[in-house]
Amino acid sequence: ATNIVSKVKWYNSTKNFGFIEQDNGGKDVFVHKSAVDAAGLHSLEEGQDVIFDLEEKQGKAYAVNLRIK
């Protein structure tokens, strides 16, 4: 899926990962520091509106092509 609009559930800049809620009630989506860095960001804030693409690797959903709404 591409261009999903949602909100950051939480992000831990010390552990370099977090999760984004899915508005459709699906499972929370993992977001890694590499996606945050690629977006030119230093961190994410809880409740922040984001747009991302969903990529599945080894049966897990990852946020990629992250951008701020």
Rank of each mutant, 00 (worst) to 15 (best):
L66R: 00
D37C: 15
K27N: 10
A35P: 02
E45S: 13
N16P: 02
L54W: 05
G47K: 06
S6I: 04
L41G: 05
E45T: 13
F19H: 02
D49V: 15
K69D: 10
Q58D: 15
G18H: 01
S13E: 10
K7T: 08
L41E: 06
E45K: 14
V36A: 03
L41Q: 06
D49M: 15
E45W: 15
V36L: 15
Q58P: 06
I51E: 09
V31A: 01
N3G: 11
Q22F: 14
A39N: 04
L41W: 11
V31G: 02
G59N: 08
L66G: 00
D49L: 15
E56R: 13
A61L: 14
E56F: 15
E56V: 15
A39K: 03
I68L: 13
R67L: 05
V5N: 11
D23Q: 15
G47P: 01
K60L: 10
A35S: 09
S43Y: 13
Y62N: 06
E56T: 14
H42Q: 12
K33S: 08
H42F: 13
V36K: 03
E21F: 15
L41V: 09
I51Q: 08
I20K: 02
Q48R: 05
G26W: 09
S43W: 12
V64N: 05
I20M: 08
E45I: 14
G40S: 06
N24T: 10
K7R: 13
G40T: 04
N24Q: 11
Y11R: 00
F19R: 02
V64T: 10
A39Y: 03
D23F: 15
G18N: 01
N65S: 04
E46V: 14
Y11W: 10
L41T: 04
Q48L: 09
N16G: 15
E45C: 14
K9W: 02
Q22G: 15
L44S: 00
V50R: 02
A39G: 06
K9H: 06
E55I: 14
V5M: 12
D49A: 14
K57S: 11
D37S: 13
G40A: 06
K60R: 13
K69M: 14
V36E: 01
F52M: 04
L44C: 02
G18R: 01
A39E: 01
V8R: 01
W10K: 03
Q22N: 14
V36D: 00
Y11I: 01
N16M: 11
F19T: 02
N16F: 09
V5Y: 12
S34R: 10
K27P: 14
I68G: 06
G26T: 09
A63V: 06
T14G: 11
G59R: 05
K60V: 08
W10V: 01
G40R: 08
A61C: 13
T14Y: 13
R67H: 06
K60P: 04
V8F: 02
D49S: 13
V36N: 00
V8S: 01
Q48I: 09
F17T: 00
Q48H: 06
N16H: 14
T2M: 12
I68E: 06
F17A: 01
V5P: 09
A1C: 13
A61K: 14
I4L: 12
H32Q: 04
Q48A: 09
E55Y: 14
Q22C: 14
N3P: 07
